[in-house]
């Protein structure tokens, strides 16, 4: 069962799901944006957390679509699980 971030714990209204509950999942997620790809220990974190924390590392655009395991994922509060593949879709090259 997938958890909404912050659903169980008292959390501020602005919480974007980057807190984990006491059953810390842990685990690795492959995060990709364009040609950049790394395995990060962010299972248990939300997509929004990864987008925010790694925006500069991966050069993630604000409008970049999130794809989870090959399918578009619109819910930024979705909690990542061990073994997930999270891609922030990089824009197509403008020139030719």
């Amino acid at each position: 069962m997938k958890r909404q971030g912050g659903a169980q714990n008292a959390a501020p209204a602005e919480d974007d799901g980057d807190t984990t509950d006491n059953e810390n999942e842990g685990g690795s997620v492959t995060v990709t944006c364009g040609a950049s790809s790394q395995v990060l220990e962010v299972a248990g974190k939300s997509i929004a957390y990864v987008r925010r924390e790694y925006a500069s590392v991966f050069n993630i655009g604000r409008e970049s679509k999130a794809m989870l395991n090959g399918a578009e994922e619109n819910d930024e509060s979705h909690i990542l699980e061990d073994g997930d593949n999270l891609e922030f879709v990089k824009k197509s090259g403008d020139k030719a």
Partner: peptide
């Protein structure tokens, strides 16, 4: 479909 920016790009 291919395109590039200055030093990066993609082919879909």
């Amino acid at each position: 479909c291919g395109g590039n920016d200055m030093t990066d790009g993609n082919v879909q």
